[in-house]
């Protein structure tokens, strides 16, 4: 500081008005930190790249037709994904509708019907807190409530209900955003025609918000198919050699099979696990692409 003031007093007025003497140093510092920040971005992207390349090189060799047609096996070269693949599809087919109805219903209640009172605040706060509860705790709930108290056993439906509750907060929040994006003018136009609240919701609000709601639901479902811990808790089997026949059947899903293979000491099983991961990631990629496609294709700009 002292140095600067000395320079300023000794300089001529023109020098005083020209660039401050510490500017080069400050600009150098700015460039340095810019590089540091950019490095952090590159580091993150690099990690993603390493992860993906590593998994592909590990697993690509094990991807063949057998992988999809065989059940799990004690021999790595015969091990397949048939049961978990079908199990995951069952799980999505059950979790999707249940969580969609509950989540969108809750969102419609909060956005279109609820009056701003304490009860509404309670529901809203509760939902944001539920979103932060670790998935393994949902597993404990599922184990106690669905598997034991409601005697569903270690069945598909017990797993689907647990998963539905787990992703419920995500669907509620994204559906609320989609509903809120519908302009008030459209609702007013409907009400001004003599439409009732439900007619307005069903014929104006929902059609306008359905792309956003679907996008949110698909993203939530893609979270659900990657979840492992809650299903381990409710006792999805890790070795299963039959396909589920009804919602009361025992089952396994992709991440659980991958977990099982990862836990084996043999290197060969790790390669099959990597192959399973590739299949799982491709499924997620497809779902996310559909979600993005829906958002871009149908999302209206009001």
């Amino acid at each position: 500081m002292k140095e600067v003031s000395q320079e300023n007093t000794s300089g001529t007025p023109t020098e005083y008005l020209s660039a401050p003497s510490n500017l080069p140093k400050r600009e150098w510092k700015n460039r340095l930190f810019r590089t540091i920040f950019a490095t952090a971005v590159i580091f993150s992207l690099l990690m993603l790249l390493i992860l993906i390349i590593r998994i592909i090189t590990q697993g690509i060799g094990s991807i063949d037709w057998q992988l999809f047609t065989n059940f799990a096996s004690r021999h790595p070269d015969e091990a397949g994904l048939k049961a978990p693949l079908i199990g995951t599809i069952w799980m999505m087919a059950l979790t999707g509708p249940i969580s969609f109805v509950l989540g969108v219903g809750t969102a419609i209640y909060l956005e279109e019907y609820a009056k701003p009172n304490r009860f509404t605040t309670l529901i809203q706060t509760n939902i944001s807190n539920l979103a932060g509860v670790p998935s393994v705790v949902f597993g404990l709930l599922g184990l106690t409530l669905f598997v034991r108290e409601l005697s569903m056993g270690r069945s598909l439906i017990a797993g689907a209900l647990t998963m539905s509750l787990l992703i419920l907060p995500i669907i509620v929040v994204s559906s609320q955003e989609a509903l809120r994006a519908v302009p008030a003018e459209l609702k007013q136009a409907s009400y001004a025609m003599g439409a009732t609240t439900w007619q307005t919701i069903f014929k104006v609000v929902l059609p306008a918000s359905v792309p956003g709601i679907l996008t949110g639901t698909i993203l939530a479902l893609s979270r659900a198919i990657g979840e492992t811990a809650p299903l381990i808790m409710i006792g999805a089997l890790t070795y299963i050699a039959f396909l589920p026949e009804s919602i009361m059947s025992q089952f396994t899903v992709m991440p659980i099979q991958i977990f099982n293979w990862t836990n084996r000491p043999q290197e060969e099983f790790h390669m099959v696990a990597a192959a399973g991961i590739i299949v799982l990631l491709v499924m997620l990629l497809v779902m996310n692409s559909i979600a993005v496609w829906i958002r871009n294709k149908f999302q209206r700009r009001f």
Binding site: V101, L102, G103, G105, T106, I108, Y109, L110, E112, Y113, A114, L122, I123, N126, I127, N129, L130, V133, V137, F138, L140, L141, L145, L165, L168, P169, V172, T197, W198
Partner: peptide
């Protein structure tokens, strides 16, 4: 509205359940 209220209450029941 009653059906939607029930949906909303399920989220509260989930917390209670946990």
């Amino acid at each position: 509205p009653k059906l939607f209220l029930i949906c909303a209450i399920i989220s509260i029941l989930t917390t209670f359940g946990i």
